[in-house]
Nucleic acid binder design. Structure first.
Length: 728
RNA sequence: GCGAGGAUGGCGGAACUGGCAGACGCGCCAGACUUAGGAUCUGGUGCCGCAAGGCAUGGGGGUUCAACUCCCCCUCCUCGCACCA
């Protein structure tokens, strides 16, 4: 009989121990029950441990899993560690210790806190992506992609973080800065491995329609894939055999193309530039090279450019059009060259005005011609377009595409914004790329039987900055024989970026100890796909895109029978803590004096600074809870004062799962009182509980009894409805 | 600029397919218990009004017996992308 006094310190350890002993949350592969796979994005273990903000993700899913389990589902709810990659390695570098030693310590700490928080994980399935038994299969995936022609090596200018000293995928660059350290990213040409995610662009786009994800999330992926339909058109250089190919979404405006612009890096620039213009062009190219990505991408900037001296011929009307170079054209998109229609494109209009280039109207609202005060990008009726006058934009596009194709001057083309996934990292802490470079045979994949390629244990793991990973300094690792010709060869020394590990981890939970395959097919068929996935929105364009890509590759190769790994996805809001900071001064903002730092509007005060800082100048704000801001509350603290259940109630209840929550001590106090009240009420009810209640039911219930029963069922209905909607 | 989401008491937020607006928590008010209360418990609490009653879901219009919910216009907020041709 429970006491009417609520004593979490007696209740919670008792049950946590029981769960541990009975392995209550073990997922059964052969229960015969319908399955439910619930997953939270696995964390990278860091030294600062878990705080109550992290639990905002884990606790609601935990409650939901318990509910599903009580409803008869066989629930798979696993946990593991995203232990390879920059986050873990940077943390290790900061503490001056080896990530190999740190990861297990940190993981143990996380595991302890999650158990304290009462989370119902099947710990028998715990995984660690830096474990050779795990990364063997990460390497196997590399080989699978390689075998299917989806992994290739290329020397192209890539994103380079000068502080982390490694190449980065496009998805790891935010506003021109490194995702881990915020440094401005540079361009460096280096031989690197890429995964051909662009080959899956259309499928990644189309299959979004069937997913139960938020509109915002799907839209972010659509934007990132960036499909646009148009045409490629060839322009002949006057008095030359050379031609410039452009991509345009508006082939119907060809008659209004009065000049062309090439990106400064375009390979034809050097060949077409005339003697008179050479020095001006070279100076401009040099200047453009010195600019950072962030300068280049700034749309507010006024247009600059230089005439190459060359002219091209507009294929539809044979008019000569001058060819310019300008940095508003990006080499990485389309063909790196554009035809310019100043009448109907704002950027071209600005450029034409500045350099006195002709502006011709070819689209009209009503079929009449009039003076253009600005570019008119809207669709309409063709004018000044010879035989096409009077056609609507859509008709014109159809006809001109056919004409271009017939005369071999162009063709309908689809372009994507997404680029291939750069996977090489010049860093120690990752899965070695399973490739051997042989002078005779080229890049030879390591035979599957030789996997895993073990990451050597080294003292010095710091990134070198030379463009080579620290592994290049280990002769025993580097010097091998070629698997094909058995001649001397050298191992690839780059490692894979951490996103490789997280692109398939949800498969490994299904069969975490399998040594013959990444997971058993029967088990995959039972458990996959993930029914409900939660995690941070910051992975919208990276992890979630990569994982979908790899799943489709597995499907194509016949390893799985589904094409989408995550049916339902929700992104948790953050936990915000009221945090002291100060207003920045001029010296905090080097940007104002031409530096490259971000402009700051608030600088948080660490606890020691806060103690010294004049109180009347402190500015308080709600800021995301994090160890680095010094505003964390730990689950241990709350467990001590109120008990974990009060914390769990608070985190689930204070706002919808996807919204931010402001952490207040008053709020947790209220949740605690609520839990106390429930306990007291329940304990009191149990005093009058009659086990034999069924036989006591009256044949004809009184009105009072009917009311009680109605209320009971209304409550069941409401609670069921709320839980199913992940609303607490 | 483009795209997505949002706006409900003093505060966080409920309200499923249109059907009693404001669940629950904070705060506030009153009472109980106390030497004491920044503890605990009980009750009350959208706004105006003594009351009857009236007014209320960012603003304006519309559909409907009925609108927080659907449609149109506007304002503001948050997030994402941003010279992508």
């Amino acid at each position: 009989m429970p006491s009417t006094h609520y004593d979490p310190k007696a209740i919670e350890p008792k049950w946590q121990k029981r769960w541990e002993q009975d392995r209550t949350f073990r997922a059964d592969d052969a229960s015969g029950r319908p399955k439910y796979y619930a997953l939270e994005m696995f964390p990278y273990p860091s030294g600062s441990g878990l705080h109550v903000g992290h639990l905002k993700n884990y606790v609601p899913m935990d409650a939901f899993c318990r509910y599903q389990s009580m409803n008869g589902f066989s629930v798979l709810h696993p946990m593991g560690w995203d232990a390879f990659g920059q986050p873990a390695e940077n943390a290790a570098i900061q503490t001056g210790r080896n990530p190999r030693d740190l990861v297990p310590e940190y993981a143990a700490n996380y595991r302890r806190t999650l158990k304290l928080a009462g989370c119902s994980y099947d710990w028998d399935r715990e995984i660690n992506s830096s474990d050779p038994a795990y990364y063997k299969w990460t390497q196997w995936f590399f080989l699978l992609l390689h075998q299917r022609g989806l992994a290739y090596r290329s020397t192209a200018p890539i994103n380079w973080c000068p502080s982390c000293k490694t190449g980065l995928a496009n998805e790891e660059v935010k506003e021109g800065r490194c995702w881990r350290c915020d440094s401005l990213v540079e361009k460096r040409p280096m031989p690197q491995w890429f995964f051909k995610i662009t080959a899956y662009a259309d499928r990644l786009l189309n299959d979004l329609d069937g997913l139960d994800w938020s509109d915002g999330m799907k839209e972010m992926q659509r934007d990132w894939i960036g499909r646009s339909e148009g045409a490629t058109v060839k322009f002949q250089i006057q008095n030359s055999k050379l031609e410039i190919e452009v991509f345009t979404t508006r082939p119907d405006t060809l008659f209004g193309a009065t000049f062309m612009v090439l990106a400064p890096e375009h390979p034809l620039v050097n060949q077409i530039t005339t003697g008179a213009q050479r020095s001006a062009v070279e100076a401009y190219v040099k200047q453009a090279q010195g600019e950072t990505e962030i300068d280049r991408m700034n749309a507010e900037r006024t247009k600059t450019g230089v005439f190459t001296g060359a002219y091209a011929v507009n294929p539809v009307n044979q008019k000569e059009v001058p060819v310019w170079i300008a940095d508003y054209v990006m080499m990485g998109y389309g063909t790196g060259a554009i035809m310019c229609v100043p009448g109907h494109d704002a950027r071209d209009f600005e450029f034409a005005q500045k350099f006195g280039l002709p502006i011709v109207q070819v689209v009209s609202k009503d079929g009449s011609t009039y003076e253009l005060a600005q570019a008119e990008p809207d669709e309409g009726v063709a004018v000044n377009s010879g035989p096409y006058d009077g056609l609507t934009t859509a008709e014109f596009k159809r006809k001109i595409n056919a004409w271009l194709e017939q005369h071999k001057l162009g063709k309908p083309t689809v372009n994507y914004r997404i680029r291939d996934w750069l996977i090489s990292r010049q860093r120690y802490w990752g899965a070695p790329i399973p490739i051997i470079h042989c002078v005779k045979c080229g890049a030879v994949p390591v035979p599957e039987k030789d996997l895993p390629v073990l990451l050597p244990d080294v003292k010095n793991y710091q990134p070198t900055g030379t463009g080579e990973s620290p592994l290049a300094a280990i002769p025993e690792f580097v010097n091998v024989t070629c698997p094909q010709c058995h001649g001397p060869a050298k191992r690839e020394t780059d490692t894979m970026g951490g996103y490789a590990c997280s692109s398939w981890y949800f498969f490994r939970y299904i069969d975490p100890k399998n040594q013959q395959a990444f997971a058993d097919r029967k088990k995959l068929d039972y458990w996959m796909p993930v029914d409900f996935y939660t995690g941070g929105i910051e992975h919208a364009r990276s992890h979630l895109l990569y994982a979908r890509f790899w799943t489709k590759v597995l499907y194509d190769a016949g390893y799985v029978g589904f094409q989408e790994p995550f049916k339902i996805l929700k992104n948790q809001g953050s936990l915000l803590a009221y945090t002291p900071g100060r207003k920045p001064t001029a010296s905090d903002n080097p940007a104002a004096s031409g530096g490259d730092e971000k402009i700051l509007d608030w600088i948080l005060l660490k606890p020691d600074e806060f103690a010294k800082y004049p109180k009347d100048q402190v500015v308080w704000r709600w800021a995301r809870m994090s160890k680095s801001k010094g505003n964390v509350v730990t689950p241990e603290q709350i467990a001590e004062t109120y008990g974990i259940d009060s914390l769990r109630v608070y985190e689930m209840f204070m706002a919808p799962f996807e919204d931010d929550v402001q952490w207040t001590e008053d709020g947790i106090h209220g949740s605690h009182r609520f839990v106390c009240r429930v306990w007291r009420w329940l304990a009191a009810s149990l005093l009058c509980y009659d086990k034999d209640w069924r036989s006591q039911l009256p044949g004809q219930p009184s009105d009072q009894e009917k009311k009680v029963r109605r209320k009971l069922h209304q409550t069941i209905q409401k609670v069921t409805h709320d839980l199913k909607g992940f609303s607490f």
